[in-house]
Design a protein around this nucleic acid. Structure first.
Lengths: 171, 171
DNA sequence: CAGGGTAGTTCAATCATTGAACTGAGGAGT
DNA sequence: ACTCCTCAGTTCAATGATTGAACTACCCTG
């Protein structure tokens, strides 16, 4: 456990990982969504890459880079989920901020991460996240917050698939 | 989750909590077992008490103080266990350092915290911890390490019940 | 009333974090 | 070719947290 904490125990690291599960992949999105200093973000991403929790995928063209969870990183889901659940249970007077449901049957998972309908604990890739009744009332305007407010999103999938730019709507 | 991290996200805090689950209760034992600076330990314990995760129990007589988990603190077990499991899975080449079993049926629990024999996820108070094959080969000599090496111990129960002093044996 | 154990506090040196400004690579438009 | 823009970082001074050692306060024992 001490060794695990050397990997994910630094300030900001778990918030970066949570955003990875939500589908955030770009430096600028982590920065805007988390209000994390750029130097610290660069440092944390470098550390996560070096321990094999996320992979750095430069685009073929351009300077853009995607950071995506590896298998080792995705396996942190139970820990991330447990911590979030504890926060919901003991620290969220207004009700849950985020709700997770099993994508194949559209049933909300319970506090242990199990789908009551299927009787299994789905991996994060089989879950969707959506806003709950206690969602943050301060409407942030970074594009990560906007998309997460917009509707359910499948975990581990890119939040901003094709037309990453804010240009005119596609063909 | 951000609020949960404000409670348990600071350096050392999760290690202190892990020791709480193991049955460590005294300032001096946390200090000796974790090699944590006294000032930081005092600060962390104060913070954990103030958010209701542990309770401070001064002894009736003497200056000794016990720090014990509250219900809110005990509910962090899934998160602590998940993190430890991840560390065992990905960061422990020599095999598990610690093994947990269900006290009522003496069966080892699986990676999800479930008892395969009973089909339930036992609360921490129903678990025992013991050394695994990959246990730390550097034999520490603080009394916490010694007792944990000695044999299985029930979680959440005091590691040093009656004669806390190192005086002569027996009544 | 000395001696020892326990739970802290104090403090200077060291280390990490913050926020703002800067760099450098790579298009897009003209 | 040239300028403008975006993106992913780096640099750096100021601020804040951590460390380790020494110190204090309290109570019990002899």
């Amino acid at each position: 456990m001490a060794r695990a904490l050397e990997v994910v125990g630094e300030r900001w690291t778990l918030l970066v990982l949570r955003d990875c599960f939500y589908g955030v992949r770009r430096f600028g999105d982590f920065h805007a969504h988390l209000d994390i200093p750029r130097a610290v973000l660069a440092d944390r991403l470098k550390a996560l890459v070096s321990v094999g929790v996320v992979e750095r995928h430069p685009h073929i063209t351009g300077v853009e880079v995607d950071y995506v969870l590896t298998e080792r990183g995705a396996d942190l889901w139970p820990m991330v989920f447990s911590l979030a659940q504890w926060g919901e249970r003991w620290l969220a007077p207004q009700g849950a901020r985020r709700l997770f449901s099993h994508a194949v049957c559209d049933t909300d998972i319970d506090a242990g991460g199990e789908c009551p309908a299927c009787g299994v604990v789905p991996p994060p890739a089989d879950l969707t996240v959506r806003q709950g009744p206690g969602a943050d009332p301060t409407l942030r305007d970074d594009r990560v917050s906007v998309v997460l407010r917009g509707g359910p999103h499948r975990l581990m999938t890119d939040l901003f698939p094709e037309p990453a730019r804010t240009g005119p709507a596609g063909s």
